[in-house]
């Protein structure tokens, strides 16, 4: 099944410059594995070494932040739109790492 995935500028080096690509999977984790099979390395930019969604990457299924719908276990359906947006964050104190 086809799911449209919108790719932010900073990750387009993995997709040959494409702004959006198609993927498949029953869950977000499956989708990211599918994308990584064609765009090697992209999964590693979104998932930590411990296997969790990176804290400073926002991924949305349609209009929902996946953190509110199961994170990597979020269910996907044919025709869903997935949007990846790097968080905009920072601040005076070094507390992020």
């Amino acid at each position: 099944m086809a799911i449209e995935v919108r790719i932010p500028t900073i990750l387009r080096s993995y997709t040959g410059g494409a702004k959006s690509v198609e993927g498949s999977g029953d869950t977000l984790a499956d989708l990211l594995t599918d994308l990584d099979s064609r765009y090697a390395g992209i999964r590693g930019r979104l998932i930590t070494e411990e296997g969790a969604l990176h804290r400073f990457v926002n991924i949305y299924v349609n209009d929902e932040d996946v953190r509110f719908i199961g994170s990597l276990d979020a269910k996907l359906n044919d025709g869903d739109n997935v949007t990846i947006l790097p968080a905009v964050a920072g601040g005076a104190l070094a507390t992020w790492s």
Binding site: N58, Y60, A87, A89, G90, G91, L93, T95
Partner: peptide
């Protein structure tokens, strides 16, 4: 979204 004197983060829904 952090409402902090030392950190900021765009609210994810508003950002989208």
């Amino acid at each position: 979204a952090e409402r902090s004197p030392t950190f900021y983060r765009f609210d994810s829904g508003e950002q989208l």
